[in-house]
Design a binder for these strands. Sequence first.
DNA 1: GAGAGACTACTCGGATACAGTCTGTCCGAGTAAATCCGG
DNA 2: CCGGATTTACTCGGACAGACTGTATCCGAGTAGTCTCTC
Lengths: 162, 162
Amino acid sequence: MILKSQVEWALHCCAILAGLPAGRYLSTKALAELHGLPKEYLSKALQYLSQANLVETTLGPSGGYRLARPPAEITFLDIVEAVEGKARTFACNNIRVNNPCRPKDHCEARPCAIARIMWQADDAWRNTLKNVPLSDLIDTLSEDIPAQIWQDTFAWVLKRAG
Amino acid sequence: MILKSQVEWALHCCAILAGLPAGRYLSTKALAELHGLPKEYLSKALQYLSQANLVETTLGPSGGYRLARPPAEITFLDIVEAVEGKARTFACNNIRVNNPCRPKDHCEARPCAIARIMWQADDAWRNTLKNVPLSDLIDTLSEDIPAQIWQDTFAWVLKRAG
DNA sequence: GAGAGACTACTCGGATACAGTCTGTCCGAGTAAATCCGG
DNA sequence: CCGGATTTACTCGGACAGACTGTATCCGAGTAGTCTCTC
């Protein structure tokens, strides 16, 4: 079980979009070049973000994407779930009902104990992601990345932002 | 991203094996019938458990599997990792190095900030699973499942345990 | 010079192929039990 | 009746196909900007 690479791409793109001046858009083409990714496929990841109302789009020349909300109001979980879906990572198929010793009319009161535990772990995972807003990532990145590169990057981006 | 069904099967099988009297083995065939699963494929899940030294095997008539350690010393994480592998759920491809504004000789001091956060969530997930020993599952199950079914099941199992 | 209309070029979005993993199945090597035979 | 060799039947383990999701790509619908023509 491994998250699709789209998740990584979407997170990186959101980090860039979060640094855009208000009202500016950035195209898929620019985002793809910046990260060295296949433009057409990255487009699909951004579509997921659009369908989840995390980003807004504009068409035509100088069109592209921008965040639909301030970075402080977008969490990692929002982005991950937009790409991966909201389904739990553990699917319970209720195989306990196949137990030949179980009366056919027996009705289970609670979800399978195994599923409950696996879902607790899933909740822990999601809660961690839910507690990290996109703005936190920007703060961390601005500490990690040397100021020169940081500035150059956004100069590069602004030149392409419509 | 969803865990493979083998994980569910392995957990259920371990729960049954945990209830076996010391020294008895239970065959794949019996485990498959009990859970209504394809015997040959379930066998592969049990192989993972065997390779991880969670269970011991014996061949020949009345052969099968038994736990290699007391249930209190086997955690959910042990079982899940035996089947799914120990790789993190988020793979960082370091796409930040493709940034055209980054000097080619620049060496990153720390892992990508995005990866660090995703790995924190992964740790939270794993820690939850690590804190649930198999013995806890047995306790929960014996509360959930009506005593009659519980007894019938283990009578059924013992009849087939070699 | 200003405004309206048509044109163009660029964008996103969905529909379409390819690959890798998960799922499912098969058969062979090996072993413990059961059987049979001799003492 | 007892002990040992043989047979047997059952087990696990790895090798072999099919289905589904993830990956990658292409092309069409639509729009914002630009240019041109008219007033």
